[in-house]
Design a protein around this nucleic acid. Sequence first.
DNA 1: TGACACATACCGACCAGTTGGTATGTTTAT
DNA 2: ATAAACATACCAACTGGTCGGTATGTGTCA
Lengths: 204, 204
Amino acid sequence: MLTETKPIPGRTRILNAAVKLIRTKGYNATTVDDLCAEAGVTKGGFFHHFKSKDGLGVAAARHWTDITSPLFAGAPYHRPGRALDRVLAYLDFRRSIIGGELAEFTCLAGTLAQEVHTSHPEIAQAAGKSIAAHASTLVADIQSAMDESGRAFDFNAESLALHTQAVLQGGFIIAKSAGDPHHAEDAIDHLRRYVELLFKKPEE
Amino acid sequence: MLTETKPIPGRTRILNAAVKLIRTKGYNATTVDDLCAEAGVTKGGFFHHFKSKDGLGVAAARHWTDITSPLFAGAPYHRPGRALDRVLAYLDFRRSIIGGELAEFTCLAGTLAQEVHTSHPEIAQAAGKSIAAHASTLVADIQSAMDESGRAFDFNAESLALHTQAVLQGGFIIAKSAGDPHHAEDAIDHLRRYVELLFKKPEE
DNA sequence: TGACACATACCGACCAGTTGGTATGTTTAT
DNA sequence: ATAAACATACCAACTGGTCGGTATGTGTCA
């Protein structure tokens, strides 16, 4: 039996190129020619698949969700029995995937949203959806952890879920501003400590 | 006696225009012509004051420090007697200046660092210095709060100071991604709760 | 025999940066 | 005191290259 290596279609190669280049250089600094060269496609091919560069931007934001969703859905942090442990395991997982170059672990959606939030609202909206969708995957565990704790909180599960994303995004920015990926880990460490303190039982 | 209204020199007008436009549109999307129009200067005037657009980028990052330093130095959050209260007052101050358009309260340095960290390292470095310099103004109060608490912490004052900036930056990104400034306030609320929990005395 | 997935060649708009000035001080030499 | 020499702060017009986008093919497969 042959190993059927099906070729990756041009559209997907362009989207993967977009993820790589936009994470490294940003949206505006990434030219259509850059994308074509990286994807091994000509300009005609590019505009066959996307009606404009902005159209690609929107598609890239959605592609980002398509890439990351299965990564997190298949990650081992869903295994612990207690909800709080699953939340902490999520943070540990996020910390564990930090390594190597900044562009390899930073968030495309955050990068896009920051850069184009006024000039290209459609792209920003698609990026916002991607972040919100990922945050929403945490809500159930956070809500369960809140319920299991038997405590009262002056925030809701959605707010804390979104906050985890805020801290991650902020950690990436500090890492970029200092040129040191280590700072992204520090941000997660503080976030983990925050979650532990929130749910810590008074006696322990 | 005449009211001597000294005219703002072109160089300063260009720097102020840069802060406004880059915060709104980002660095790459802000053209030299945009800057000239906003500042009321011609292109020749621009390149008299700055040797290149990148040169302006570096100068704008430093200008950002020049603008923000006196703002924070003169703010009322330094007044409380207990160090912890000064730290919390700082966060309350940061929360209070959020309002209106996103471009009016977001951080130029964070925006710059995110966008140009690979393509224009000099600008990113200048932006990083601005963030680090601001964070360092918090270290003394945080250190005092740690000392006054009499507790042991597994992080140092510098780390927590930088983390406050990470959370702020992250809050801005979530706000931009959702198109809602309110999220920046949520991030600060969580950060304030974290600081309170860190320093809360066991008995209270 | 089309519909699809590309490629080649090209265009007009725009953009960073240059050129070659002018007007207004400020310093220096006599 | 004053003129020459220099410095600073701008301006209008231009240039060479780049960018997003288009027009028009060509090969392939159901």
